[in-house]
Design a binder for these strands. Structure first.
Lengths: 391, 391
DNA sequence: TTCTTTCATTGACAGCAGAAAAGAATCACC
DNA sequence: GGTGATTCTTTTCTGCTGTCAATGAAAGAA
């Protein structure tokens, strides 16, 4: 969360103001009285927090007369003026850069992406800054300033100083990304791990709103997991957390690149599924779409591969639930396209492995458009802009 | 954390005072300047927080002139007057009650235990209150008041309202323990799960001091795990967390009473080890001590049983470390008596299953005297007395 | 002795949030 | 159409907390 340039008009200066702002941001239009109840602040404190935020335009009175009480004076709704500020979110993968321009409510206004031929920082960074400049022009078109830039990178990322410690896909080591991009663009930059960024988006604007403990499981090229405990995203003492992809499910299972056998990723990630499908059918299947087609065509061997994958995911979720007891698990990721094939395996394996009341945990799915990763990056920028406490 | 009676002289009334007090409590004698640095309060704030605490006697000036700076005015050390308050901690198991009288620094002054013949609440509660009265008399002997009573019970315990939801060992359901014992004894009562209580003790007075993320793994009749994330003990949305005993290590492993196969508890808990030893030797071994003797006698089959158990524990720890990335894992519990037999299995399995930098996690052991569980209960009472923020 | 360094305290001050009360806007009822 | 009840919102006042800046205190160094 390094800000390379000071931003002039931070919406929330005091803890109470920040609390009020984030409450309105996450819980839609609210009356002042409702804000007071939710935040446990006094009504007076809410009034005093809301006023300056309205003066600078981040909050507005909602004209819509939605919920009036059965009795008494009608309440005035307060909501965030989404268009008051814009943010850029960027996800850098090994072969492309996805960028979005998002508003204060993290709604995507513009999405762009460019393919990469070279993953060297020297090649990626110019493409990245060019993309940022493009989106800054778009923002000018809206007549709104961009107040922050969030970057999401897979791997070991130190969010506090904005350094990419090691990203296996990009083959980057110790790149001070926040500093580089900050000086190149003049924007306040946040850098975070991609799954954590997605978790932030879910926590503030998605299915994690209002929950203090939940897990986000992503299924796709890899198996990832973002965790929110006590209302805060878990980073781990050494920058690693949520590594459920390398939970070992079956000591006799297929070998994993990590050196173990039967890791979730070695059973349920795209490459593992493709290999399974090739072995089952003998055909040279190379894309997830092809494999999916075969499965939906009814090939029992292929369906069995997906069923096993679902079971592995379900057991991994069961492990997370047993360890942390979250309120909800959100399953997302590109692999969700095959969810109908996973579903039964996940459900059964989860039910079998979750212990006691932990099984009451709500397991749900959530589709993930490809710009969602970049939206997660934008969410971290918004979070930083608001000055929320992420210690 | 229900207090049934208000306590008259809470040491810390303001957040800053509570912070200062807990800092001094955990980090031994400190100079005011050092407190200011650690808490990031201003020196003035420290002075103003310390004074009232000294006036009521919870903090005292330490006469020992320990660390004087190389230059400048020598610093005065401040420390907690351990003897200024006493607390009772009680662990209730299926067949006995263990109780300790502990001072403010959670040092045990007196320990008692009584055996139980009946685990019905109607039989246990009178024995419990009698034990409390005994310890209150002991406290009178010290001339110090008992300021709180902590109870630790295994199973699903709601610490916020002090209700035992379900304790399998005791066969208790929905017992409002805090209320009952509070009215019977007139003391402020806290009730918590036993492993969480032990975790609190470790966090405040043990190997977890100063760490914001660590795990405590207990090995014995069962396999338990207490977690501290973001500086707070994890309770789980449904009151269940740290259930690593039912992580499934091997789908083909021995059946577990939870319905799954190959749970850690079905491999590494005392009953599983005893069964394994019986199968390996054909002898009617019924106690952990006997099994241990056979193993130390060199029986290779028995040693193999312990080695497998160690491996299961190591893999469970690996799972926790992969998911949460704690700074440290503390292994404790009665089963530690066999640690020499577990050690290699734990070490190897942990090293194999921990992914990436998570493997840097410090895994250590800590012996656990039988009163330690009761000490944990006392720690929760101290925490509640101090008014620490455990939300 | 005088300066430097560090620790500790003091008093003034600013800011935040709560309490209480007043004002505002509506409905229900007579 | 008044009047009262009810709920939302704001205002004013007040207390508390923690920071700031200045001061005092206690050593060693020059």
């Amino acid at each position: 969360m390094r800000s390379t340039t000071p931003h002039e008009a931070v919406p929330a200066t005091t803890p109470a103001a920040s609390l009020v702002f984030t409450t309105v941001l996450s819980h839609g239009p609210l009356t002042r009285a409702e804000i007071a109840r939710r935040t446990r602040l006094s009504p007076a404190a809410v009034t005093k927090a809301v006023r300056p935020l309205m003066e600078v335009g981040y909050l507005v009175e909602d004209v819509d007369e939605g919920a009036r009480p059965a009795l008494g004076r009608p309440a005035n709704l307060v909501r965030v003026d989404a268009g008051r500020a814009l943010f850029i979110g960027i996800k850098v993968t090994g072969d492309e850069i996805i960028a979005v321009l998002a508003d204060l409510c993290c709604h995507i206004r513009v999405a762009r992406h460019v393919r990469l031929t070279d993953r060297e920082p020297a090649a990626v960074l110019p493409a990245l800054t060019a993309l940022v400049r493009e989106l800054l022009l778009e923002a000018d078109g809206f007549g709104v300033r961009v107040r922050g830039l969030g970057l999401a990178v897979s791997g070991d990322v130190d969010r506090t100083d904005g350094v990419v410690r090691y990203s296996p896909f990009l083959e980057w080591r110790d790149i001070p990304l926040a500093e580089i991009v900050g000086t190149a663009t003049g924007l306040p930059v946040t850098v975070d791990n991609d799954v954590r960024a997605l978790t932030v988006a879910e926590q503030w604007f998605g299915a994690g709103v209002g929950l203090s403990d939940f897990a986000l499981v992503t299924v796709g090229a890899g198996i990832g997991c973002g965790l929110v405990v006590h209302g805060r995203v878990v980073s781990g003492a050494h920058g690693v957390a949520g590594e459920i992809g390398h939970l070992s499910i079956d000591p006799l299972g297929p070998p994993c690149h990590c050196g173990n056998n039967g890791c979730v990723e070695a059973i349920a990630a795209d490459p593992a599924i493709l290999r399974g499908v090739r072995e089952a059918t003998g055909r040279p299947v190379t894309t997830a779409a092809e494999a999916l087609e075969l499965a939906h065509g009814g090939d029992p061997g292929v369906r069995e591969v997906y069923a096993r994958a679902g079971e592995a995911i379900g057991r991994a979720i069961g492990s997370v639930v047993n360890v942390l007891g979250p309120e909800r698990v959100i399953i997302s990721g590109e692999g969700l396209a095959a969810y109908d094939l996973f579903a039964e395996g996940i459900r059964d394996a989860f039910a079998a492995s979750a212990f006691g009341t932990a099984a009451q945990c709500d397991v749900m799915t959530r589709p993930l458009p490809f710009e969602e990763w970049a939206r997660g990056a934008a969410a971290t920028a918004i979070q930083s802009f608001i000055g929320s406490d992420t210690r």
